[in-house]
């Protein structure tokens, strides 16, 4: 089984209230030196069967239409298992 990770982040120009809240909390807790925090989502997908190009294309489509709201978010699809990368290449 292969694992694919989809990272979803708000687009850089979009306001991130949660990230801002974290950033404001950091110095209060004694963590200095952080000028910006952006918070995102990480999806770990366990894929049945071979992780071929078709499967990756499907995951890409999944990310684009469902996991990420592409009006305000960007996403990156990454293959995690070493053997899966082999399949891909």
């Amino acid at each position: 089984m292969a694992r694919v990770v989809v990272d979803v982040m708000l687009k850089p120009e979009i306001l991130d209230p949660q990230g801002q809240a974290v950033q404001r909390a950091l110095p209060r807790l004694g963590f200095e030196g952080i000028s910006d925090v952006r918070q995102g989502k990480r999806f770990e997908l366990e894929v049945d069967g071979p992780l071929d190009e078709a499967a990756l294309a499907r995951i890409h489509e999944m990310a684009e239409t469902f996991l990420a709201n592409t009006v305000i978010e960007d996403f990156v699809v990454k293959v995690e298992e070493a053997e899966a990368v082999k399949v891909e290449s």
Binding site: L10, K11, E13, I14, L15, D16, P17, V71, I72
Partner: peptide
Amino acid sequence: GPAKRPAVQVGDPFQ
């Protein structure tokens, strides 16, 4: 700059 600027705004009700 960023490639494109969205017409969408995101609000923060607590702000």
